[in-house]
Design a protein around this nucleic acid. Structure first.
Length: 557
RNA sequence: UGACCCAUGGUGUAAUGGUAACACUGCAGAUUUUGGUUCUGUCAUUUUAGGUUCGAAUCCUAAUGGGUCAACCA
């Protein structure tokens, strides 16, 4: 249709579903974010979190945080804690905190009820036999010889499973549905398996644990979730989800699926991320190159930028792969508004201003953030010897190079115009220092004779600057689409060898004593934050993202 | 060679039977004491074939392409 009112966005398909359900008389909107505590949350989860909490907020409803902790061998409180921290950091508060494990008693009772209705049975077949008799996508499965046991026998066996009479794998409880069903998940799916393992919450109370399919819909139902939103691959699970709810006659939650987030040059599966951590390819779950929430936080991403990103990627049902540049756009957009401007030199060359008095120091007031007047100014010392970045000098510059070169003049940001008079080289031919002269009348922005100078470069006073470690990050993988990295590969062939570069640079003194929460723009270089490895004697900065660099693009051509 | 899901610029997302648009990216220019920001302009889109209709990105059918499912994972 034609005109949309300005500012009014069209609805995504989930919003349409919710509005339809409201139109049909549904009074509530209650969603949930249901992670399994078996790893750290990543940017893909952020999309789901923003969606679930966002939908609840938009429609005046609630969103629960529920841990899908039905498999004790994979789960740990370490993950529970990190998940809570990440959700809160993103800016969301859950209405209720739940654990699937809190429902184990209820789930057990319901399983008994299904047994009594003749809808579930204990199967003595081995894992191998069950696999073999399931059939394939084109061949129907075969019924288990134990499929038609009586309810009493099933109940007794199931109770004994619970009481620990059998070893892992000896028996399972299966739903009695249809071994010839075209949907493999409906071929007598397993509801319970025996796992003699300590659970991070229930300890050794249980040795039988419900499967995802049996636990999830019921958990939604117990919490009276109205819209159970999950990713596309669960689409085939929906008939089973509905089957349990229908047979049990409990609150009818409904499941809806959306396409998960994929990002270029990024691997998103928890299994793969765990592998990166375990093999030491990265330093941990919060290595700033990781796509995890904690890594993005450590890297300097803000919750606002991630929420903006989640909003911009949209929600639909088709597979997608989002350009990494969109994420970068979102942080830059946020940090440009808020980050304090500072000067830092990553790859220094010394510059001596020969006509500037020795021993003199001037204090220059520099604006903290041109986008925000309230940010005020800070004091920056200037003296005879300074450092500039190696990028900002070329002995033999190409056309349109506005920076420093022999005989050329450039503006030192906030300070004077300087002209390069001499290049001093070491025995190896390396540039040791630049000897320049300055125009004493050029401080406010003008010049002694009104001449205009195009180039502006950043600098730090050598006598006042502090050394600092700078960690520069790049993509972890070389492939734009990492899904085509074959499953059986170690994926080491696809790692970017230059994903981390560590340099020692110089920072302006106002950065000393800065707090870890503060975000900075090193002018003309990029956005940086203070890493948690930083100490008073040795500061460590992470580069969140570079500034857009149209010169680098031009130079590359 | 099954069932199900999906198909709009390079990447995403809208348009809900009536002029295919917005964002990112790319490109060009203006402004600029950040080659940043901002601003302006610009390249580029309905998988194919039938059908329904005055009219189809939209509805129907088929084909094609992509995805998911054969863990006692979630």
């Amino acid at each position: 249709m034609v005109n949309e009112v300005a500012g009014e966005r069209s609805l995504n398909f989930l919003e349409e579903i919710i509005e339809e359900s409201i139109a049909k008389g549904e009074k509530r909107v209650h969603t949930r974010f249901p992670p399994e505590p078996n790893g750290y949350l990543h940017i893909g989860h952020a999309k789901s979190i923003c969606l679930n909490f966002g939908l609840a907020k938009k429609y005046g409803g609630k969103c629960n945080l529920r841990f899908d902790d039905t498999n004790p061998v994979k789960e740990d409180v370490e993950y529970v804690d990190s998940i809570k921290e990440d959700v809160q950091w993103l800016g969301f508060n859950w209405a209720e905190e739940h654990y699937a494990s809190d429902y184990f008693d209820q789930l057990y009772d319901w399983a008994v009820e299904l047994i009594e209705k003749g809808l579930a049975y204990v199967d003595d077949q081995t894992q191998e036999e069950i696999r073999l008799t399931r059939g394939t996508v084109t061949v129907p499965g075969k019924e288990s010889p134990w499929r038609n046991r009586g309810a009493e026998e099933n109940k007794d066996l199931f109770r004994r499973m619970k009481e620990g009479e059998f070893a892992d794998g000896d028996k399972v409880l299966r739903a009695k549905i249809d071994m010839a069903h075209p949907n493999m998940l409906m071929r007598d799916p397993i509801m319970y398996r025996i796992i003699h393992s300590e659970h991070h919450r229930t300890g050794d109370k249980w040795c039988i644990y419900p499967m995802y399919d049996y636990a999830h819909g019921e958990s939604d139902s117990i919490e009276k979730i109205t819209h159970s939103i999950c990713t596309l691959e669960f689409d085939v699970h929906r008939p089973l989800y509905d089957w349990f709810i229908e047979k049990l006659g409990i609150y009818p939650s409904h499941q809806y699926e959306f396409a998960r987030l994929n990002l270029t040059y990024t691997m998103m599966s928890k299994r793969r991320l765990l592998q990166l951590v375990q093999e030491g390819i990265v330093t941990g779950w919060d290595d700033p190159r990781m796509p995890t929430i904690c890594a993005l936080r450590r890297r300097g991403y803000t919750p606002e930028s991630i929420r903006a990103f989640a909003d911009k990627v949209g929600v639909a049902k088709r597979d997608n792969i989002i350009d990494y540049s969109l994420l970068e756009f979102c942080v830059r957009e946020d940090l440009n508004r808020t980050a304090l401007r500072r000067m830092a030199v990553l790859d220094p060359i010394k510059v001596v201003i020969t006509n500037y008095p020795e021993g003199k120091t001037e204090i220059i007031n520099a604006v903290n953030n041109p986008e925000d007047e309230r940010a005020g100014t800070r004091e920056v010392p200037f003296s005879r010897e300074i450092y500039i970045d190696r990028d900002d000098f070329m002995e033999d510059p190409p056309k349109k190079y506005y920076r420093l070169s022999p005989g050329a003049e450039v503006r030192l940001r906030y300070a004077y115009l300087i002209k390069c008079e001499e290049v001093v080289k070491g025995a190896d031919g390396d540039i040791k220092e630049l000897r320049c002269t300055y125009d004493p009348e050029s401080i406010g922005g003008g010049s002694s004779d009104g001449r205009k100078v195009k180039g502006v470069i950043h600098w730090v006073s050598a006598a006042h600057a502090a050394k600092a470690e700078m960690r520069l990050f790049d993509r972890l993988f070389t492939n734009e689409d990492t899904s085509d990295i074959a499953e059986d590969k170690t994926f080491k062939d696809y790692l970017n060898p230059d994903s981390l570069t560590v340099v020692t640079g110089f920072i302006e003194p106002s950065l000393l004593g800065a707090k870890e929460v503060e975000k900075f723009q090193f002018e003309r270089v990029g956005y940086f934050c203070i890493d948690r490895d930083s100490t008073a004697s040795k500061m460590v900065f992470n580069r969140t993202v570079t500034l857009k660099d149209s010169w680098a693009k031009m130079a590359a051509k």
